[in-house]
Design a protein around this nucleic acid. Structure first.
Lengths: 179, 179
DNA sequence: ACCTGAACACCGTTCAAGT
DNA sequence: ACCTGAACACCGTTCAAGT
């Protein structure tokens, strides 16, 4: 298949519209899974990891998801999270804040992963990046950066996905605690 | 003052390096405030809001902060949060996850605010955007989007900064609960 | 109705020439 | 040592002409 660069402009108004459509298509799978058998917490973890994995596979999605307004995928994710927050018994006034915190965290991590993927030159693996960063951290001034130096070792075999989930669990624990 | 476009390239290697330097300069103020009189929770809230406000004033910072590796401002923010997490008595293994969750949330919201600011055409106020979004939300299909329709009204006089802080408080509550 | 491909605008970057 | 400004590369978009 081969066309001129102008051909797509018959079908979409601009690149952004194209990305919105492509993002919705990719996330349709994630959103297709039904949550009926799960606890609210597990349902939230499932959507969160689904979005995380989708961005991992297609980093350009990460940059795209921030536009709540135009992006129907984001609306659907927010709706799903919101319902689970309701199911957790969070009182009315706090539901919006709780669902937003979860959505912001999910999209925020996604956006950063996307930025990292963009910044990474081709041929570098995640392990390379972590190794380099870990080396950098352990060379920091111990007086200025005691905390970061202390965790530099943990960075080398670090699991991004597990840490993402740990953050979700912290927010869920916070929701449970404040209820 | 007037120069040719090539003049800056004597001083910096590329645009990214320029943005890193500018970001560090802007955040120097935020990081200058000392946290000695505050509780760990308040110290975390102070840094978080400082970063939030800095991005609000200079949206381009938001897009910049994701690069943990090269950005010394991000390292300093992470260090400061990490120390407060230690001060909260979080056990060693969980310190990295807790500090990361806070940092990811702060940078994530910042990045999204930056994207929103970029997407917004000049002359539109935040109130305009919220009004439009609120109108859109209240026109959604009640069967598909019951949760979002339910909160559409709350969106019109919505305080981004307060909601950001509510998210920080949820994570702090989660940290306290899991300890 | 849909595609082609030359052309334009915009922006980050280079570089030979200037002071 | 530092600035100038023409020129290049890259990429999103337009549009008159084709089928």
């Amino acid at each position: 298949m081969k066309t001129g660069p102008g051909a797509i402009y018959w079908h979409v108004a601009n690149k952004s519209e194209l990305l919105v459509a492509a993002t919705d298509a990719v996330l349709a799978d994630v959103l297709a899974a039904d949550a009926s058998g799960e606890t609210p917490q597990d349902a939230i973890r499932t959507v969160a990891l689904g979005v995380f994995d989708a961005i991992d596979a297609h980093p350009w999605i990460g940059a795209q998801l921030s536009r709540l307004a135009s992006q129907s995928a984001t609306l659907q994710i927010f709706e799903r999270i919101g319902r689970q927050v309701q199911a957790l018994g969070v009182p009315g006034a706090a539901q919006f804040d709780s669902a937003s915190a979860l959505l912001n965290y999910i999209l925020g991590v996604g956006g950063q992963n996307a930025a990292n993927a963009r910044a990474q030159e081709p041929g570098t693996s995640r392990a390379d990046v972590l190794g380099a960063e870990s080396a950098l951290w352990s060379r920091l001034d111990p007086d200025q950066y005691p905390f970061i130096r202390g965790i530099a070792g943990q960075l080398r075999d670090h699991d991004d996905r597990a840490q993402f989930l740990a953050g979700i669990d912290l927010i869920l624990a916070g929701i449970a605690a404040l209820r």
